[in-house]
């Protein structure tokens, strides 16, 4: 997951070699900070994404904020939920589905 993000970032970086400064100046620090979650979530439209990204990654004031928020996002994204359906529950569910007719008509059941 992390490398995908990294790759995207590299792509973004190479895409803006010409107008990087112009893009970065297209949004203010305040606007960039406001959009930081949307940017990290890849939820901005391409135009705004390029502008906000250029700003966050090149602005001395905003970049530390980006690094911090990104560390948080990555930490949460890698949290694993280890709970699995208890065997008894799985059996109960299958039974209740069979009562509803599940499997009795299926060609794959035998």
């Amino acid at each position: 997951m992390k490398w995908i993000h990294e790759l995207r970032r590299l792509l973004r970086r190479s895409n803006r070699k010409i107008s990087k400064e112009a893009l970065a100046e297209a949004v203010t620090c305040e606007e960039a900070a406001e959009r930081i979650f949307e940017w990290l979530d890849n939820e901005l439209d391409p135009e705004l994404e390029a502008k906000v990204g250029a700003h966050l990654e090149t602005c001395a004031r905003c970049y530390p904020f980006l690094v911090f928020e990104e560390a948080f996002q990555e930490a949460i994204a890698k949290v694993e939920q280890h709970e699995t359906t208890p065997g008894e529950l799985r059996d109960k569910i299958m039974q209740s589905l069979e009562t509803e007719g599940f499997g009795s008509r299926s060609s794959s059941s035998d």
Partner: peptide, 14 residues
């Protein structure tokens, strides 16, 4: 400032 402590969090606690 780089938020290293986020990574020290145990999944269960999060």
């Amino acid at each position: 400032p780089e938020g290293h402590f986020w990574r020290e969090m145990v999944d269960a606690r999060v």
